[in-house]
C-alpha cells in the first residue's frame, strides 16, 4: 500500500497530459483497434480468439502490410494496390500491376469488414482470412514470390525478428505468425461509421433525396447487397457479358452453373473504390447504373433477378447515387491507426 502511494500523485498529471490535443492525436494514431461488432451486425466469421489482437501484433501486421519485403524483388507491398484513401481499393486502376509491371486480371477490391466475409477474393477462392495473403504473395502477376521466401527474408531482416518476438511473446519468425499478424491488421479494418450508419442509429438525418435513394436501394438492390454489410456474399452473374471472358466462381467450384459468377461486392465506400466490377470495366457509378438499367447481357448463368434489368428514371438515378454517397466512411479512410507509419 505504502509503495503504490507516490503513483497516485502522478495520476492527475497523466490525466492532464492525456487531455492535450497532441496527446489525443498520438493516442488515436497509436491505439490498437479491437474487433467490435457494430450494433445489429452478425457474428464475425473470423474468430480472433485464436489470434488475440495485441498492440505489438497489430503494429507488426500494419508494418508487414505496407512493406514490399513480402514480394519477390521488394517492389510491391499489399499497400501498393490497397490504398487507404480508396478504402483499400486501387483508385483509377481497372486491374493492378504487380511485380515487373505485369497486369493482373481482376480489379483490386476494397478491404474492410473482412472479418465478416465468409470467403475472400472475387471468386471466393480463399476460405480463411489468415490464408488470404498467400494468394497475392505467390501470384506471379502480383507479388511474385512465395510464403516460404517471405518468411526467409523476414528471418534475415535486421528488425523483424525482434518485432515478431514482441508480438508473439517468444522468438521465432514463421508463416503462421506472419499470417496471423497480417490478420490482426486486415481483420480489424472495420468500416461502420458512414452517414448511412449514423442515419440508421438515428444520429443523423438524410435529405429527402437520400431517403428516396435508400428506398430505391432497398427495393432494387438490397436482395443481393444486403444490409448491414451490403453484400449477401453469394456468387452471381450480373450480366456483364453474354459469354463470360472470366469463368469466375467456376474456376474454384468446377461447376458449369458458376460460369461468370463473382462474389457480390459490398457497396460500403463505393464512391471511393472506382473503377467497378470484377474487371474494373466501369469508371463511374453512372456507368454501373447504365449497365443495370439497360445493359444486362443474357446468358445461361445470368442471375434471374436481373433478367429484366433495373430500369430507373433520371430522378431515381440521382436519388440512388445520392444514397450511395452516404455509404462513404470518412473516419475509416482517415483513421491514422490504419495508415502507413515510418517508425
Amino acid at each position: 500500500m505504502k509503495r503504490s502511494t507516490p503513483w497516485l500523485f502522478a495520476l492527475p498529471l497523466l490525466g492532464m497530459l492525456a487531455a492535450m490535443p497532441w496527446a489525443q492525436a498520438w493516442m488515436t494514431a497509436h491505439a490498437t483497434p479491437r474487433l467490435q461488432v457494430p450494433e445489429g451486425w452478425p457474428v464475425p466469421r473470423y474468430d480472433f480468439a485464436g489470434n488475440p489482437v495485441t498492440s505489438a501484433g497489430f503494429a507488426l501486421g500494419r508494418r508487414l502490410f505496407y512493406d514490399p519485403i513480402l514480394s519477390r524483388d521488394g517492389s510491391i507491398a499489399c499497400g501498393s494496390c490497397h490504398q487507404q484513401f480508396a478504402a483499400f481499393a486501387h483508385l483509377d486502376h481497372r486491374v493492378s500491376h504487380g511485380i515487373g509491371g505485369v497486369n493482373g486480371k481482376r480489379n483490386t477490391p476494397g478491404l474492410f469488414n473482412l472479418a465478416w466475409q465468409p470467403d475472400l477474393m472475387w471468386d471466393g477462392s480463399v476460405h480463411h482470412l489468415e490464408l488470404q495473403p498467400v494468394a497475392p504473395m505467390s501470384n506471379p502477376v502480383e507479388m511474385g514470390g512465395s510464403l516460404a521466401l517471405a518468411v526467409d527474408k523476414l528471418r534475415r531482416n535486421a528488425r523483424y525478428p525482434e518485432l515478431f518476438a514482441q508480438a508473439f511473446g517468444s522468438p521465432g519468425v514463421d508463416s503462421q505468425r506472419l499470417l496471423r499478424a497480417l490478420a490482426q491488421f486486415t481483420g480489424t479494418l472495420v468500416s461502420a461509421d458512414s452517414r448511412y450508419d449514423r442515419f440508421v442509429k438515428g444520429k443523423e438525418a438524410f435529405t429527402p433525396q437520400e431517403r428516396d435513394g435508400l428506398d430505391l436501394f432497398r427495393e432494387h438492390c438490397a436482395s443481393c447487397h444486403r444490409e448491414p454489410l451490403f453484400s449477401d456474399f453469394s456468387y452471381r452473374n450480373n450480366g456483364l457479358d453474354a459469354a463470360p471472358r472470366d469463368a469466375g466462381r467456376a474456376v474454384v467450384s468446377g461447376r458449369d452453373e458458376d460460369q461468370g459468377r463473382f462474389r457480390v461486392p459490398s457497396l460500403r465506400n463505393i464512391a471511393l473504390t472506382a473503377p467497378y466490377m470484377h474487371d474494373g470495366r466501369y469508371d463511374s457509378l453512372e456507368q454501373v447504373l447504365d449497365h443495370y438499367s439497360g445493359g444486362i447481357q443474357p446468358s445461361p448463368t445470368l442471375d434471374p433477378s436481373l433478367a429484366h434489368g433495373v430500369p430507373l428514371s433520371p430522378d431515381q438515378r440521382t436519388a440512388l447515387l445520392a444514397f450511395l454517397d452516404t455509404l462513404t466512411d470518412e473516419s475509416f479512410v482517415h483513421d491514422r491507426r490504419f495508415a502507413e507509419t515510418h517508425d
Binding site: G50, N51, S125, V126, H128, L129, E130, L131, V134, A135, S138, N139, S146, L147, A148, V151, D174, S175, Q176, L179, R180, A183, V251, V252
Partner: peptide, 18 residues
C-alpha cells in the same frame, strides 16, 4: 487458418487459387 509444422502452408503443399 494458418498452421505450423507439417501443415505449414510455406511447405508448398498449399493451393492459393482455391
Amino acid at each position: 487458418g494458418a498452421q505450423t509444422g507439417t501443415l505449414d502452408p510455406a511447405r508448398g503443399m498449399f493451393w492459393t487459387w482455391n
